Amino acid sequence: MDAGENEIRLEKPATALRRGWTTGACATAATKAALTALLTGEFPDPVQITLPKGEIPSFALARETLGGDHAMAGIVKDAGDDPDVTHGALVMATVRRLPAGSGIVFKAGAGVGTVTKAGLPVPVGEPAINPVPRQMMTQVVTDLCTESGIAPDIEIEIAIENGAELALKTWNPRLGIVGGLSVLGTTGIVHPFSCAAWIHSIHRGIDVARAEGLKHVLGATGSTSEKTAQEFHDLPDIACLDMGDFAGGLLKYLRAHPVPRLTIAGGFAKLTKLAQGALDLHSGRSQVDMGWLASQADALGGNHLRERILSANTALEVLEMTRLEGIDLPSVIAGKARAVALATLRGAPVEVDVMIMDRAGVLLAHAE
């Protein structure tokens, strides 16, 4: 998936998954088709491009327009089997000749965002078209103009149909990208359920927070815990980093790019896994150790619950049985999760507090 283009994390199917194409690859193919038509009068369909690692995919055109001074080509994005909100979106490139010496100019069309905050790989005020897609489009334009014997003085306007509405389902508003989606991708290929894409988005969130001078950021495992912690600390949206399951991705990046204070918030089960030392909290990659939980309860006088805890189906079941016995297990878990976070930060200048909430968002424990 493209970083920032997927909001809902679904369980990965057991069957083989089909790869797709990034928005950047679609925009590059559309740019090549449009400029070819502007220079020759004919749209190549399908149009082929070369991706950064040498693959040469073909893209069918879904829309084309040739005017006197411009040409437009549109390609429907196929994200393969990834749960990407931009799957099926129409990505359009309109190209125009510019006065001599103008060079290649990128413009945000309808549905493509504009960068308004520092810390992203594109300067403030520029269209939210990331460096690798820019390089791919620049290469395509340069090659075609060289073949035609003209200077590459071309405006490239990228638009995404319904992009402004789709962007509301992404992290773009928090990152300061307004008006639409980002044109992203580093290889041109969408790898379904890519952990790297999610972690990349966390990193960009930290970059933006640092550039904005924020002193306190929040990483939460889900929207309920995020809402409670955000209100508790009175944090702006931009401080919320969409950590999800990737506590390690968040902590390791903060180790090298520190922010003075970090709050980690989440439910009892997820933060139990962090307290055990797991840095990837996804249900498919780490599990709650009932024996470990039983030992924590033992230390609080709950040894009479050991067998029940060992036979429990879920961490929630353990939480409920210990609460009924007056055993404050969440406080212990919060403290141990904080210790794991601090150990992962390895002395980086980041203060950490951990908050555990129930499913209704009620605060159960707070380790500072």
Rank of each mutant, 00 (worst) to 15 (best):
C26R: 05
A360G: 09
S194R: 04
I158A: 04
K32V: 05
A367H: 14
V288W: 07
A110P: 14
E351C: 00
P46K: 03
V124S: 04
A239W: 15
G67W: 01
L168K: 14
R63L: 13
D143M: 00
D289Q: 07
A33M: 12
V85W: 14
D143Y: 02
G176H: 13
G113P: 11
K336F: 07
L342D: 06
S225M: 05
K270L: 01
L66T: 14
R261M: 02
D234S: 03
G267N: 05
G119D: 14
L329C: 03
A339E: 15
A3N: 13
T31H: 08
G163T: 11
A343W: 00
V288C: 00
L254N: 04
D245C: 00
I150F: 04
I49W: 13
Q230H: 05
A197M: 10
T142V: 02
T50C: 00
V76M: 11
G219W: 15
A197S: 10
M355L: 11
G80N: 12
M92S: 08
P52Y: 09
A269I: 01
I238A: 06
L319P: 11
A108M: 09
A294Y: 02
T65A: 03
A34R: 05
E161P: 11
L181F: 08
V288E: 04
D358S: 03
G149Q: 00
V95L: 07
V141K: 06
P258M: 10
A256R: 02
T322H: 08
T31G: 00
V178M: 08
T344Q: 06
T344N: 01
E212L: 09
I160D: 15
S58Y: 14
L316K: 09
L61Q: 10
D69Y: 06
C145N: 01
I327W: 07
G125R: 06
G74L: 09
A159Q: 07
A196K: 05
R174E: 06
P173E: 05
N313H: 08
A334G: 03
R9G: 05
F193Y: 15
W171R: 04
P127V: 07
I129H: 06
L262V: 12
A16G: 07
V105F: 10
V217C: 04
T50G: 02
P99Y: 01
D45N: 13
E212T: 12
A312S: 12
T22W: 13
R261T: 14
